[in-house]
Nucleic acid binder design. Structure first.
Lengths: 133, 133
DNA sequence: TCGACACTTTACGTTAACGTAAACTTCATT
DNA sequence: AATGAAGTTTACGTTAACGTAAAGTGTCGA
């Protein structure tokens, strides 16, 4: 029996509100067990939450992430059709990630040239200061 | 004089609606010139639109992108304070991109293992088919 | 000159992802 | 027994990023 977590433990660990965590459950992304009314989160739930937040940082909607979760769950007991659908989805997601890698590379280049430009402007200002004295 | 673009040209090139492009203008991200009422977009406007969409794919809000644009514009005639603020912002954005690179790498690993798992399940199904015949 | 088509403004509607307030219940301490 | 901390449900509010409908303008080819 691996350890469990309370809602506020997870909330503070990942720096989200308890409201958000409950909302994710409401949307079918998490399924914690209960002791009475109180939610109890397993290590698997924790991993799922981590995946949700990672997806968010990459601009995935909750619905998209849910789709992936559902597909994955179905895959465990999957028919051939399910499995092939999963493979197709994986390919699609991979393409999206490639696109994002490209985007990031471009933005990094832009940041580089922006920084250079800034530094040049700064040294130019320093020059003016010097001549003014 | 480099070439100009109509709103629908840009819309179809980047696969967005004209509504979106006008909305970006409304939010202060684009400033096309006019010929009468009609908007005329320059190459610079086109680049800006490209940057907006790239930002979106990376999960930037329009407000964030606008901040960057504004900072950049101010930088051109920038005081020392402005320039240092710009450099700080650049550093922050760089950190965000690093985080996203990490996220993407993690997700790629997960996709890899997911694919492996799928393929294993598929060959297993094939085995069953064979023995059933 | 007459459509037809691309463009325009105005303005209300919509969806996602929560925030926030209200009004409880449980449980551990004092 | 009472207080306080952490949890719960219910439900209405909010913001971002457009969608969409309505009604008008401009201009070009037949």
């Amino acid at each position: 029996m691996s350890r469990t977590y309370s809602i506020s433990e997870l909330a503070s660990e990942f720096d989200v509100t308890t409201r958000s965590i409950r909302f994710y459950e409401d949307q079918g992304l998490l399924h914690p067990t209960r002791r009475g009314q109180t939610r109890i989160y397993s290590s698997k739930d924790r991993v799922r939450l981590k995946l949700i937040l990672r997806g968010k940082r990459l601009g995935f909607s909750l619905a998209e992430t849910k789709e992936l979760f559902d597909l994955w769950d179905e895959t465990l007991s999957g028919s051939e059709k399910q499995l092939n659908l999963m493979l197709k989805t994986i390919t699609t997601k991979r393409a999206e990630l490639e696109q994002q890698l490209n985007d990031i590379a471009m933005v990094q280049l832009e940041l580089d040239s922006a920084e250079t430009r800034c530094r040049e402007a700064l040294t130019e200002l320093q020059q003016k200061k010097m001549t003014a004295e």
